[in-house]
Simulated assay, not measured.
Amino acid sequence: MSQALRVVLAGGGTAGHTSPLIATAQALQRLTDVELSCIGTPKGLETTVIPQAGLALDLVDPVPMPRKPGLDQALVPVRLNRAVNQARKILHDRGAEVVVGFGGYVSLPAYLAARRLRIPVVIHEQNAIPGLANKVAARFAAVVATTFPDTPLPKARFIGLPVRTEIQALAREGRPTRDEARAMLGLDADRPTLLVSGGSQGARSINTALVTARDGLLADGVQVLHVWGRKNFTDQHVEVRDEATGARYVPVAYVDQMHVAYAAADLMVGRSGAGTVVETAVVGLPGVFVPLPHGNGEQARNATALVAAGGAVLVPDAELDRQRLLDVVAPLVTNPDELARMARAGRSLMSATAADDLAGLVIAAAQPLGAKAHATKGRGF
């Protein structure tokens, strides 16, 4: 009987890093005998979601990378060296045979520690514009996998984004069905349905534009599920019904099962974080994306390939208002043929198998002696 493959996964801070990490861990568990552990920092989302996923978590000190000169910037080398030493001990104690990183503050110490120990490194870059940690490690990584086809990293291999099992089930098996999803969310079964969400924290410009366009959409017979974000939702946000068409506006603070909202919708308006872009494409939900106007422009780049393929429409944040939203959304959400064409375009671009594909690359990249000993469960790589 072969010894279990020992894999250490590094990533944290936000769901953008932890979600593909957990999806990849689940795929590894399906495909081979494996011992998994994760590296994170005490400040990130990983301290909650990784243990909830049943994965062991080791912590290193965070090493933020300030852009402006000052004391924090001057202390980066000392802090990084300390974190690398911590990660090195973790990798040694865990007997790591391969390290898988998803970017963020915690990944760079893990990458550098793995290099010192001559452990193969597999990188997955979530965004179209790569982060610093993955830029550095791509120079020596055994495998560099990307979510988008035009990410500028050496040796980049486009595989898509590892998505959680619920998204895979919706993409592959159509579970839940549209009728089931609408019933679960209290929506009418036979109406054009618009999903609006700015993510877990909401998006002010999207929320504002939707509220001003709401009555026009309802008058066109479009029902709206509006996810405000917990910090934006108040008792004043109440359901509204158009007396003539019967269409309803249904505001909620948050949706715990986003795959159900995807299944219920004909069209989505939202930000273009990598997770949203990929998940909607994978399940065939056309999107109107309004990229976050701040940062390094990564959200606009995230949407580029899907927009070019015809699976989504992009509206700059500065141009989003009542009239622009109505002009784009109203004729689209009521056009089944165009929605079906966009759904096909999204599915053709983004694969639902990225988690399994990345897991296969991880298994193949394991140290030579270990790789020969680890057989996959019913799948060859």
Results as ranks from 00 to 15, higher is better:
Ser2Trp: 04
Leu5Cys: 07
Val7Ala: 03
Val7Gln: 03
Leu9Tyr: 05
Gly13Asp: 00
Ala15Asn: 13
Gly16His: 08
His17Ser: 09
Thr18Gly: 02
Pro20Cys: 03
Ile22Val: 06
Ile22Gln: 01
Ala25Leu: 04
Ala25Val: 07
Ala27Ile: 05
Leu28Phe: 10
Gln29Leu: 02
Gln29Asp: 00
Arg30His: 05
Asp33Lys: 11
Val34His: 11
Cys38His: 13
Cys38Gln: 03
Ile39Ser: 04
Pro42Tyr: 03
Lys43Gly: 08
Gly44Met: 02
Leu45Met: 11
Leu45His: 12
Leu45Ala: 12
Ile50His: 05
Gln52Ile: 06
Gly54Leu: 06
Ala56Gly: 09
Leu57Ile: 13
Asp58Val: 07
Val60Ile: 15
Pro64Lys: 03
Leu71Asn: 06
Gln73Trp: 14
Ala74Tyr: 14
Leu75Ile: 02
Arg79Trp: 10
Ala83Met: 13
Asn85Tyr: 13
Ala87Leu: 03
Arg88Ser: 08
Lys89Asp: 14
Leu91Cys: 10
Leu91Ser: 00
Gly95Arg: 14
Val98Thr: 05
Val100Glu: 03
Gly101Met: 11
Gly103Tyr: 05
Gly104Val: 08
Ser107Glu: 09
Ala110Asp: 00
Ala113Pro: 00
Arg118Ile: 07
Ile123Tyr: 10
His124Asp: 01
Glu125Met: 12
Asn127Trp: 11
Asn127Cys: 00
Pro130Ile: 00
Gly131Gln: 08
Asn134Gln: 10
Lys135Val: 00
Lys135Pro: 01
Val136Ala: 04
Ala142Arg: 15
Val143Phe: 11
Val144Pro: 07
Thr151Pro: 07
Arg157Leu: 06
Arg157Met: 09
Phe158Ser: 02
Gly160Pro: 06
Val163Ala: 02
Arg164Asp: 04
Thr165Ile: 10
Ala171Glu: 06
Gly174Gln: 05
Arg175Lys: 15
Pro176Trp: 06
Arg182Glu: 05
Met184Arg: 13
Ala189Thr: 12
Asp190His: 15
Pro192Ala: 03
Thr193Asp: 12
Gln201Glu: 14
Gln201His: 13
Gly202Lys: 01
Ile206Pro: 10
Asn207Cys: 04
Ala209Gly: 06
Leu210Gln: 01
Ala219Pro: 07
Val224Trp: 12
Leu225Asn: 08
Ala247Tyr: 14
Tyr249Cys: 09
Pro251Trp: 10
Val255Leu: 07
Val255Thr: 06
Asp256Gln: 10
His259Trp: 14
Ala263Ser: 05
Asp266Gln: 07
Val269Trp: 06
Ser272Pro: 02
Gly284Asn: 02
Leu285Met: 04
Val290Asp: 00
His294Asn: 01
Asn296Val: 11
Gly297Met: 12
Gln299Trp: 12
Ala300Met: 14
Ala305Glu: 11
Leu306Ser: 05
Ala309Glu: 13
Gly311Glu: 03
Gly311Asp: 01
Ala312Met: 12
Asp317Val: 03
Glu319Leu: 09
Leu320Ser: 06
Leu320Ala: 07
Leu326Cys: 07
Ala330Cys: 04
Ala330Arg: 14
Val333Ile: 08
Ala343Cys: 15
Ala345Lys: 06
Ala345Cys: 14
Ser348His: 14
Ser348Met: 11
Met350Ala: 15
Ser351Asp: 12
Ser351Leu: 03
Ala355Tyr: 02
Gly360His: 09
Gly360Ala: 07
Ile363Ser: 06
Ala365Glu: 05
Lys372Met: 15
Lys372Tyr: 13
Lys372Arg: 15
Gly378Ile: 04
